[in-house]
């Protein structure tokens, strides 16, 4: 009996070892590719929401975008407001004057066909034209008295989007305050 047990254990040991070896091998091959893809994706997303910046320096929750001459062009801020399904993971680009330059939804779990339209070009371009038009946009959906057009039948998602923008603005003003004091008022 003990001999049988030993044999069984040894068998499992060998199978698991081979499996571990194969996994380590595939991890080694794919890990650099996956990291490169994620970095490229993040880079693209950042330049999409803050097009005027040429280079970026990341710092936890936000990335600082720099112009060609090395001056600060603006910030790309990551926020995660709570949507209808779960958290909406989004990037917000804000320039020096505190104006929103673009948004991008990185991941979400909103209802397909309804809230999921938040990733669509239509919603984004409509929102950006509102930002362009107004000197100071009231970042609430129209139903709540603001300026932002909500997605039809997806008010909760649209509200979450606005919450994310407000959160980003808050982070923006906190950080410009710090930068202002550290650089002597020169942003």
């Amino acid at each position: 009996m003990p001999k049988q047990m030993l044999k069984t254990a040894l068998f499992l040991f060998i199978i698991s070892s081979i499996s571990g070896l194969l996994l380590a091998l595939s991890e080694q091959i794919t890990a650099p590719v996956i990291i490169a893809i994620n970095e490229k994706f993040e880079m693209q997303a950042r330049s999409q929401v803050l097009p005027q910046a040429k280079t970026f320096k990341t710092d936890k929750q936000l990335a600082i975008g720099y112009n060609d001459d090395g001056s600060i062009a603006g910030f790309v801020i990551g926020v995660k407001p709570k949507g209808y399904g779960a958290q909406i993971n989004m990037l917000v680009g804000i320039n020096n004057n505190g104006k929103i330059t673009g948004t991008k939804i990185l991941s979400h779990s909103e209802t397909p066909g309804l809230g999921a339209k938040i990733t669509g070009e239509e919603f984004h371009s409509k929102f950006m034209s509102v930002i362009e038009k107004n000197e100071k946009t009231d970042l609430r959906v129209k139903k709540d008295g603001g300026d932002v057009d909500a997605i039809t039948a997806a008010t909760i998602t649209s509200r979450a989007f606005c919450e994310g923008l407000k959160e980003a603005q808050k982070i923006f003003s906190e950080n410009t305050l710090i930068l202002n004091t550290s650089t002597g008022g020169k942003l």
Binding site: L22, I29, T30, I34, I37
Partner: peptide, 8 residues
């Protein structure tokens, strides 16, 4: 292995 390959 498949999951890693698809991700990459």
């Amino acid at each position: 292995i498949l999951d890693k390959m698809i991700q990459a």
